Deep mutational scan, measured.
Amino acid sequence: MQFKLIINGKTLKGEITLEAVDAAEAEKKFKQYANDNGIDGEWTYDDATKTFTVTE
């Protein structure tokens, strides 16, 4: 399945997509990506659109 991450950071904004088996795997990958890029914020997930959002 394809999942999307919307980044609303203080210095980094944008979207990325990835393939994952389920939402838990996608969340783990997205949070690792955010951590690697210094993004720390409030996370939400919309199951209907398979979209994660992180807002700093």
Results as ranks from 00 to 15, higher is better:
Met1Gln: 13
Met1Trp: 07
Met1Ile: 13
Gln2Ser: 14
Gln2Val: 15
Gln2Cys: 05
Gln2Ala: 13
Gln2Phe: 13
Phe3Ile: 02
Phe3Asp: 00
Phe3Gly: 00
Lys4Met: 11
Lys4Pro: 00
Lys4Leu: 12
Lys4Cys: 03
Lys4Gln: 08
Leu5Met: 10
Leu5Asn: 01
Leu5Gly: 02
Leu5Arg: 00
Ile6Phe: 10
Ile6Asp: 03
Ile7Thr: 04
Ile7Phe: 14
Ile7Gly: 01
Asn8Lys: 10
Asn8Phe: 12
Asn8Ser: 11
Asn8Cys: 06
Asn8Trp: 04
Asn8Ala: 11
Asn8Thr: 14
Gly9Asn: 15
Gly9Lys: 05
Gly9His: 09
Gly9Tyr: 07
Gly9Ala: 14
Gly9Asp: 03
Gly9Thr: 15
Gly9Ser: 12
Gly9Pro: 06
Lys10Val: 12
Lys10Gly: 09
Lys10Ala: 13
Lys10Cys: 06
Lys10Asn: 13
Lys10Leu: 04
Lys10Ile: 08
Lys10Asp: 06
Thr11Arg: 06
Thr11Leu: 14
Thr11Cys: 07
Leu12Val: 12
Leu12Gly: 09
Leu12Cys: 04
Leu12Lys: 13
Leu12Ser: 09
Lys13Cys: 04
Lys13Thr: 09
Gly14Ile: 09
Gly14Cys: 03
Gly14His: 08
Gly14Ser: 10
Gly14Leu: 14
Gly14Asp: 05
Glu15Arg: 07
Glu15Asn: 12
Glu15Gln: 10
Glu15Ala: 13
Glu15Thr: 10
Glu15Trp: 12
Glu15Leu: 13
Ile16Tyr: 15
Ile16Gln: 11
Ile16Pro: 01
Ile16Trp: 08
Ile16Val: 15
Thr17Val: 15
Thr17Leu: 14
Thr17Asn: 10
Leu18Ala: 12
Leu18Trp: 15
Leu18Arg: 07
Leu18Phe: 13
Leu18Val: 15
Leu18Glu: 07
Glu19Cys: 05
Glu19His: 06
Glu19Phe: 09
Glu19Asn: 04
Glu19Arg: 03
Glu19Leu: 08
Glu19Pro: 05
Glu19Tyr: 10
Glu19Val: 10
Ala20Gln: 03
Ala20Glu: 13
Ala20Met: 04
Val21Glu: 14
Val21Arg: 06
Val21Leu: 07
Val21Ile: 14
Val21Pro: 14
Asp22Tyr: 12
Asp22Phe: 05
Asp22Glu: 13
Asp22Leu: 05
Ala23Ser: 14
Ala23Lys: 04
Ala23Thr: 13
Ala23His: 15
Ala23Met: 10
Ala24Phe: 10
Ala24Trp: 13
Ala24Asn: 05
Ala24Arg: 09
Ala24Met: 09
Glu25Thr: 13
Glu25Val: 12
Glu25Arg: 03
Glu25Ile: 14
Ala26Asn: 00
Ala26Gly: 03
Ala26Ser: 02
Ala26Phe: 00
Glu27Trp: 10
Glu27Cys: 05
Glu27Asp: 14
Glu27Pro: 00
Glu27Asn: 06
Glu27Leu: 15
Glu27Ser: 12
Lys28Met: 13
Lys28Val: 15
Lys28Ile: 12
Lys29Gly: 13
Lys29Asp: 05
Lys29Val: 08
Lys29Asn: 05
Lys29Trp: 10
Lys29Thr: 08
Phe30Ile: 03
Phe30Tyr: 03
Phe30Ala: 04
Phe30Pro: 00
Phe30Gln: 00
Phe30Asp: 00
Lys31Ile: 07
Lys31Phe: 05
Lys31Trp: 08
Gln32Thr: 06
Gln32Glu: 06
Gln32Gly: 12
Tyr33Leu: 06
Tyr33Ala: 03
Tyr33His: 07
Ala34Met: 04
Ala34Asp: 00
Ala34Asn: 02
Ala34Val: 09
Ala34Gln: 02
Ala34Thr: 09
Ala34Lys: 01
Ala34Phe: 04
Asn35Lys: 09
Asn35Glu: 13
Asn35Val: 15
Asn35Met: 12
Asn35Tyr: 11
Asn35Pro: 01
Asp36Lys: 11
Asp36Val: 15
Asp36Gln: 14
Asp36Met: 13
Asp36His: 14
Asp36Tyr: 14
Asp36Pro: 02
Asp36Cys: 08
Asn37Lys: 11
Asn37Cys: 03
Gly38Glu: 07
Gly38Trp: 13
Gly38Pro: 02
Ile39Thr: 03
Ile39Gly: 01
Ile39Glu: 02
Ile39Tyr: 06
Ile39Met: 11
Ile39Asn: 02
Asp40Pro: 10
Asp40Met: 14
Asp40Gly: 14
Asp40Val: 09
Asp40Leu: 10
Gly41Gln: 01
Gly41Asn: 01
Gly41Leu: 02
Gly41Glu: 01
Gly41Ala: 02
Glu42Val: 15
Glu42Asn: 08
Glu42Pro: 04
Glu42Lys: 09
Trp43Arg: 00
Trp43Ser: 01
Thr44Tyr: 14
Thr44Asn: 12
Thr44Cys: 06
Thr44Glu: 14
Tyr45Gln: 02
Tyr45His: 02
Tyr45Ala: 01
Asp46His: 11
Asp46Met: 08
Asp46Trp: 05
Asp46Lys: 06
Asp46Ile: 13
Asp46Thr: 07
Asp47Arg: 03
Asp47Leu: 08
Asp47Ser: 15
Ala48Lys: 13
Ala48Tyr: 14
Ala48Asp: 09
Ala48Gln: 10
Ala48Glu: 10
Ala48Val: 11
Thr49Lys: 11
Thr49Val: 08
Thr49Ile: 10
Thr49Cys: 04
Thr49Tyr: 11
Lys50Ala: 11
Lys50Asp: 04
Lys50Tyr: 10
Lys50Gln: 12
Lys50Arg: 09
Lys50Leu: 14
Thr51Ser: 11
Thr51Ala: 03
Thr51His: 03
Phe52Ala: 01
Phe52Ser: 01
Phe52Asn: 00
Phe52Ile: 02
Phe52Met: 02
Phe52Gly: 00
Phe52His: 02
Thr53Ile: 15
Thr53Pro: 00
Thr53Tyr: 11
Val54Leu: 11
Val54Pro: 00
Val54Asp: 00
Val54Ile: 04
Val54Glu: 00
Val54Thr: 02
Thr55Lys: 07
Thr55Pro: 01
Glu56Phe: 12
Glu56Pro: 11
Glu56Gln: 12
Glu56Gly: 05
Glu56Ser: 14
Glu56Thr: 06
